[in-house]
Amino acid sequence: MGAALDIADEALTPRQQVVLTAALELLVASGDGLTMTAVARRARCSKETLYKWFGDRDGLLTATVQWQAAKVRMPQVDRARLDAASLRRSVKEFARDLLTVITGEVSVTLNRLAVTHAGAEKTGLGRIVLENGVLAIRKRLKPILEAGRDAALLKFTDSEDAFRTFFGLVVRDVQIRLLLGEELTLDAEAVEAHVAKATEQFFTLHGV
């Protein structure tokens, strides 16, 4: 059986993207009923190919969550030329990606399933979503925050605490309201206003 594909280590081929899209669509449609057979049928590929690429069902789920989380892109900054404006712009772009992804139907579905698994003491999906979702997203922003601190543009003692402050300002109670079934729609204008306010508040707390 092949090793699970690591989205962080290699670019996906178009066919692999089709497979992960199919997996995401099936998760939204059928929740915990995702099977390798159903994904293979929807993506029009063989189960043997899925096992070769992803290893097993958990490997496929891991790659699917990684691919979804990768939509929150790591900010690109030039440490040698980092200034207040470029840092603020990068943090705001990250906040926009984070809020857009985390309030999308796919992320809400994945998080609902993960919470259900955790409550039922199932270790699979809950662990996968935790490790490859928010914890992976955290790893993308913390180096940027630390670069800002090293450039004397941000002040904080612990980058973990700084990230949690940032996450709380951006996400607020939106995620829990969606998880509990509230019909909450954020259009592009609402997202932009939300992240602009969150960014301003973060720099008020941690900016120099």
Rank of each mutant, 00 (worst) to 15 (best):
T116E: 14
L178D: 07
F167C: 01
D173T: 14
A198N: 12
Q175N: 11
Q66D: 09
R177H: 08
L12P: 08
R15V: 10
A162K: 03
K155R: 14
G148E: 07
A85W: 02
C45E: 02
G207C: 05
L179C: 08
F163T: 06
G124V: 06
A84D: 14
A114S: 13
T35Y: 02
R81P: 00
A3M: 13
R112H: 08
R149W: 08
A69W: 07
V174E: 00
L82Y: 05
F163H: 13
L186C: 05
Q175F: 12
L154H: 07
D83E: 08
L153S: 10
G168V: 11
L180T: 07
L113Y: 03
R57E: 12
T62S: 15
D58T: 13
D150N: 13
A80Y: 07
V101S: 03
K71H: 15
F54Q: 08
E182W: 03
V91I: 14
L125G: 06
G168L: 11
Q201K: 08
D161G: 07
F156M: 08
A147S: 14
L98W: 12
V101E: 09
M36P: 06
K142E: 15
I176M: 14
A69C: 09
D97L: 01
V134Q: 10
K52F: 07
L87V: 08
V129K: 10
L34N: 01
L24Q: 15
Q201C: 00
L87A: 12
T13I: 09
L179R: 04
L205H: 02
L34G: 01
F167L: 12
V195F: 03
G33Y: 02
R140W: 07
P14Y: 13
A162M: 10
R140G: 10
A147F: 09
R15C: 00
K92E: 15
L87G: 14
D6W: 06
K47C: 04
D83W: 00
R89K: 13
T157K: 12
R41C: 01
S90W: 03
G207A: 03
S86H: 09
L20W: 06
L34Y: 00
V65F: 13
E183P: 10
T116C: 00
Q201W: 05
A23T: 05
C45I: 14
E121I: 07
D83T: 00
L135T: 13
R164G: 01
L153Q: 04
M74P: 05
R96C: 03
M1K: 09
